[in-house]
Design a protein around this nucleic acid. Structure first.
Length: 206
DNA sequence: CATAGGATTTGCT
DNA sequence: GCAAATCCTATGC
């Protein structure tokens, strides 16, 4: 299921249930926003520098977690795609909380946040689900600490799926920053941020 | 070995 | 709207 292109996997993960089992309890949520990242050819991907100690999981077998620390204080969760030896991963950017909302709120330490915002954003999601680098490389198909369930993904309305440019990758050259590799459910309250309005395509520089 | 910068979030102006 | 928080990685000398 995971051993396909990161773009295909990013689209497919929408509507699936992300489940975290920890000592403090169980938390889960429906994934509503993802982003695809490629291999060394993708100037916006961590794999752009080739295989390193940090990015090794991206080059490993599909269905494992790639968790990294960003800006020195936030964690982000990816599901590894592509076959073993080929780099590719899907950043999980937002989920609609289903189970363990109290635990999520406690982990977040922000009692007044709306339910839908508890895991809206890649770093908020990791904080709400209690995900850190201890889970880097974890097997998401083993069903132990962290896994994905098909759930009622079939109930997802394909007409609600929208795409757009990936977030925060403006440093990437060429057309990499502009590729519509971000996927989400239109107008969902648990998006990290709105998708840009779909406008008629205009050539660059106009 | 030194240093620049980041797949973010939050709080203040 | 802007900048701080904060640390690890990647790169260059």
């Amino acid at each position: 299921v995971y051993a396909r292109s990161s773009v295909a996997l990013a689209r497919a993960l929408l509507g699936t249930l992300l489940v975290r089992d920890a000592r403090e309890g169980r938390t889960s949520g429906i994934i509503v926003e993802t982003e695809a990242y490629g291999g060394p050819e993708d100037a916006a991907s961590h794999a752009r520098a080739g295989r390193t100690a940090r990015t090794a999981p991206m080059f490993g077998p599909a269905g494992h977690a790639y968790v990294y620390l960003v800006y020195g204080l936030h964690h982000c969760l990816n599901a590894v795609a592509e076959r073993d030896g080929i780099a590719g991963a899907v950043l999980i950017r937002g989920a609609a909380p289903v189970e363990g909302l109290d635990l999520m709120r406690h982990r977040r330490g922000r009692p007044h946040d709306a339910d839908a915002r508890l895991a809206a954003g890649p770093a908020r999601l990791c904080q709400a689900f209690g995900i850190d680098r201890d889970l880097d490389g974890a097997d998401l198909t083993a069903g132990r600490a962290l896994w994905l369930e098909a759930g009622d993904a079939g109930a997802l309305d394909p007409g609600r799926v929208v795409t757009g440019p990936r977030v925060g990758v403006g440093y990437a050259g060429g057309d990499w920053a502009g590729r519509p590799w971000r996927f989400g459910l239109r107008d969902h309250p648990s998006l990290s941020r709105p998708f840009p309005d779909l406008l008629p395509h205009t050539p660059p520089g106009t």
